[in-house]
Design a protein around this nucleic acid. Structure first.
Lengths: 232, 232
DNA sequence: GGCACACATTGATACACATCAATCGCCTCT
DNA sequence: AGAGGCGATTGATGTGTATCAATGTGTGCC
């Protein structure tokens, strides 16, 4: 599976539990680590399901985790792909509103909600960090809503690929042949398209010299030029 | 304009600045009110623009405020319609990621960011309230992404109308002929459709007896039955 | 009142994307 | 090596929604 090489261990700061909380001191981090446990998942494993009681929060350590919402008739919308350093369900009260599943092998740090709440309760800066995280999550959601509602298939894909590249680059990954560990179905369910349209559109972009399709990877060649007219 | 009756003053708790912070004491509320000012807007007025520095946060007191993201080529995605009690840009750092404009006449409580931050800094329960607010905002965003990516026009409209009704009902409004103060263009830009499709789909629903279209209002007749097969 | 003007509606047509249906490639298992 | 299976790809066709265009409908302004 393409994800195996993608999910290879890498020594970046985000690959720690709470790596997101860049302002935490060493003592805080040590204590945080005692609160939860490191859980490995294999491809397609479900971390939690929408509707289930939200007892823990999750921090991706390694691999990719897809966050999605389903309807009982098989329709699925992947709202985001979580990468190392991303936190899931940190403020969810009651029940999960979404599900999460591993895209390829993944490692996740899981902390019982009440323990984390207790940890955070006498550390105001943690709450601030959480608020900042949620703010970027909301901003991302706005981007995605724009994409879903107002972009055509080709533009959706170009924007998706360049954003994905930028996120991986920020984690220090090699993005020249851009790793694309998620399936075409996952991409389709993320962009509000069908598998076939994703394939066809990628093929069209390749014919045009904008990208090069490799197994489990895509090389972005000319996206700036191609994207420029399509984007604003 | 239809919004005039819609935006008529009503004496519910949410129509206070910080009405959202239901756990605030009277003393806190009094102080909060000294920090900001009450600003009236007329239809189409812009509260803030994406890209501009985010100096204040906003609390809708009266009327409806549309939150949207634009591309320079006139494409627009309205990400939400804010109602009294809703807070805007409460955690935005740096620059606004979205714009906001009044849908019909509106009144907004505006608080300079640093003053609010100071107010909240020694009141941990305020931060908790903010986190909870943002969590529901994120959950809403997930719903909208599903709608945008995976629902057809008719289902989008039914879900939109019923959600809108539920929100107004929660504010104690009369929803039997459901007030719809936003234009067809606004609805289209919210659902990722065109004005024409919105009109046609509403007309189809009316012909089928699911709704009744009135000026500035829509009566929901049979949506449960109509929606039931379309929804889950 | 009557003229603008914007918004809403309806129609004719085009097109992007979905759907249905093979085929192909790759990996796993026996 | 062969069989099975799943994901990816490509083709043929259908359809939902966009686009283009015209007409209705109300609303504010002079």
């Amino acid at each position: 599976m393409a994800a195996s090489s993608f999910a290879a261990p890498c020594a970046n700061a985000a690959a720690q539990p709470g790596g997101f909380l860049s302002h935490l001191g060493a003592a805080d981090l040590r204590q945080l680590m005692t609160l939860g446990e490191r859980v490995p998942y294999t491809s397609q494993d479900v971390l939690f399901t929408q509707g289930a009681p939200a007892g823990k929060c999750f921090s991706v350590v390694e691999g990719v985790v897809g966050i999605y919402r389903t309807e009982c008739d098989n329709r699925r919308q992947i709202t985001s792909f979580a990468l190392p350093g991303d936190i899931l369900e940190i403020a969810t009260q009651g029940h999960h509103e979404v599900s999460a599943a591993a895209i390829g092998p993944a490692v996740v740090w899981e902390i019982p909600r009440e323990k984390f709440a207790q940890f955070a309760s006498h550390r105001p800066y943690v709450l601030n960090e959480i608020v900042a995280l949620m703010a970027t999550e909301i901003a991302d959601a706005h981007d995605k809503m724009f994409s879903l509602g107002r972009r055509a298939a080709e533009e959706k894909l170009i924007v998706f690929l360049t954003h994905w590249r930028d996120r991986l680059a920020r984690l220090g990954r090699d993005v020249d042949p851009l790793p694309v560990p998620m399936s075409r179905r996952d991409i389709a369910d993320h962009l509000g398209l069908t598998v076939e349209t994703v394939c066809r559109t990628l093929a069209k972009l390749e014919r045009r010299g904008a990208i090069e399709i490799l197994p489990g990877r895509i090389r972005l060649l000319d996206t700036e030029a191609v994207a420029a007219p399509a984007l604003a």
